[in-house]
Design a protein around this nucleic acid. Sequence first.
RNA 1: GGGCGCGUAGCUCAGCUGGUUAGAGCGCACGGUUCACAUCCGUGAGGUCACUGGUUCGAGUCCAGUCGCGCCCACCA
Length: 888
Amino acid sequence: MTQHGGLRELGKAYDPAQAEAHWYDFWHSGGYLKPVDRGRGPFVMVMPPPNVTGELHMGHALFTTVEDILTRYKRMNGYAALWLPGADHAGIAGQWVVERELAKEGKTRHDLGRESFVNRVWDWMEAYQERIKGQLRALGASCDWSRYIFTMDPGPAHAVRVAFKHLYDKGLIYRGERMISWCPRCMTALSDLEVVHSQEASFLWTLRYPLSDGSGFIDVATTRPETMLGDTGVAVHPDDERYRDAIGKHVRLPIMDRPIPVVGDDAVDAAFGTGAVKVTPAHDPNDFEIGRRHGLPAIAVMNTDGTMNDEAGPFAGQTILDARANVVDRLREGGTLIATTPHTHSIGRCDRCDSIIEPMISKQWFVNMAPLAKPAIQVVHDGQIRFVPERFTSVYLNWMENVHDWCISRQLWWGHRIPIWYCADCGAVAATSDEFLIACPGCGSRRIEQDPDVLDTWFSSGLWTFSTLGWPEQTEDLRLYYPGHVMETGYDIIFLWVARMIFLGIEFMGVPPFRDVYLHGTVRDANGQRMSKTKGNVLDPLTVTAEYGTDALRFALITASGPGNDLRLSNERVEQQRNFANKLFNATRFALRAIDMAHIGRDSDGAPLQPVASAMSAPDKWIVSRLSHTIVEVTRLTDAYQLHEAGRQLYEFIWSEFCDWYIEAAKVRLYGDSGDSAVPQTLAYVLERTLRLLHPYMPYVTEELWQQLPHPGDALIVAPWPNPGLRYPADEQSFASIMQAIREVRNARTEHGVEPGRKIAAIVYPGQSSSTYAELRSEFQSLARLDPRRYEIRSGEPIATDRAVSIVTGNVSIFLPLADMIDVDAERGRIEREIEQVLGEIERATSMLANQQFVSRAPEAVVAGHRERLESAEERRSLLEKRLGDLG
RNA sequence: GGGCGCGUAGCUCAGCUGGUUAGAGCGCACGGUUCACAUCCGUGAGGUCACUGGUUCGAGUCCAGUCGCGCCCACCA
């Protein structure tokens, strides 16, 4: 094993573990993972930084695969490819994993205090960052480790403060008392996006509120009876006949026994429930708005920890759910509970901990979105940013056009501290880009205190495309690598992350941070279920990789489904791709034996020369031509982000065309006595380019094998992307026709029960294809397993041969005199069926060609194709009919 | 209440810009130990492309509608 590529012993089967350990080091230590200017300018992709909360999962394996393919592809195409890795401190999720650890020791973060708790989280982050780096390497990620960066590193932290101050100074960040989503378990405010809504079964309770003047009552329907303790009004639709007279009157709130007004408001749906709504401005976003319109006070009856407060009177101290039950009981006893109806409605839960979210009025920091959204909509509208697949464009626009202000403060300890300081003396509020403020900028007082809250983790993520490059410093990296080209991530974080990178990129850098947004789907298990630890259906990338190899996992992931679609992964699927890697490995072993014995010419770069056309026979030209075709297709598909389809075509080309047909045909000349051939040259040429083509998709096995072959340069990872070579249409066709004939002979053999090993006689009337059959005589003989002494190629019209199976393929007649194995009647039946088929073909083609519309409107080539087809079908029919006549 | 995706062989999915008789892998059936590979090779069976209508010379592919499944967004008590 040499440090610099070089020859390694190839075993009998591909051993991924050995190759992976060796080649990753080779790439890394060779400096190939850093961007190197090769004249085509930069290609930049910033990695979505994994949360440092644990192990990598299959979603990470998927994004690594896609991004690594794109990076390797661009690198081979001569771009200074920068794939910038990093990790995210994961705010609330990061805090939570450490809190859970503490819980095992019977402690809470409050037992430690803020400072030592944060230190504890840092310990976790440092340990797990190393793990995550190792896991990314194991997946073959060819990212630039010299630029690896963490969201809490000094650079990004400084960027966060500078960005905050800038937005604050510009009036785009403000502090206000608003209705926000509150998680009573995490004890923090959340943004709308961190609340997951789902339909859950519950009840609709109807409560009776008596009018204060004794003239009757109003029934209200609610899903949250416990909030009635904080009711400060009842709302009805102003046009609702039933309640029109009540507007302006008061009702007496049961239990709390206080008068609250009845108001008329358009927001009330007269058709729902009783048409009257209790109004709790402190605990419902709708009620908050209604209350504001009518000047109703907001009485908060809950604490931030999910219990009732003193305003809840007799229920103070109870949990919300207990209070609900008790309030309902109490109302029932008092006769004011009128009905309890089963009802499913939407419940919001915390994205992290699944607790039920409470809407609460709270003083928080917000980003004023309207001015930022405007240009972020524009750049997508005018095509500066493109989504792949395209359908996500409208998803993005729809969200951005209706975006609400973004609540960015979190009552957590772990994260970027809000860079705002309050002066105890003069009451000044000061934003700073420094880590600490010594004195109040207003009055010079030292009695200042920093806001205790931290920022939403996505605030720093939103700056990631430039904070990673040194911003706000005007670094060389920033100048060279901003804006980037592709942002690859999951469709589930379009709003959380992609949208925010776009408007923050525009705000701070003046131009959008990337051009193409490639979105991948979710990796599911074999049954289409989301993988989760509780379900126990998780496939761990490293376990799978250890068993089948990284290349196998990557290829399984990439070929499973296209961009934007979810995909199913199973061990069987990975195993299939392991087999593919092994197939390629063995094909190369085969080729190497032939190549080692031949003197293979090289071009000026060291790549094997294209074999001399005059020395090539049809199979050589066929495979070279097919390779050229595959290069064109894989290039086109990779450029179009159709990586799954590119992968499939590579699979087809390598397994079916190269291995099953070319190598099998090549053996005839290699092992035969035909003397010199272009086979070793062709093998070297085709294989070397094929490995280059496959390298982004299967980096390890290709590097391993390529190093064994004559090749240009030192490392496949930086070898030039192959240009399509020559096409040989005539040879492609002639070999394809021989392939078809071979298949038909094999078919006939199987149908007639000929033992696989037995060599049989054959008489071929090739007609116009005589030169093809003459040239490929040995290949045909060998692959169809014919007896050389009883294999004849005859000219002229086919002459009946008794007791023979007859095959008509193209315009060629083949007779297999199988004597006693032939049942004449069955043979006649078979031919009749074939004639029927051909007649159908003839009819279709004839009617199409008779159709004036078709002939005049369809493209020339399509019409010509049908003409040719008709011609050959006619010929085929006459051959078949003659044969039928001969059978008597 | 809006929006999106999916429905193609028993299963999982391709089919990219509409153009022969719709493909792959797995599974199934039959048969194979020749010196690249049994992690393999050969042959085969299997599909009214969810349904209805339309556009077109031509539709799995484009349009409209229907049915079924899934997802996203939205402050309907």
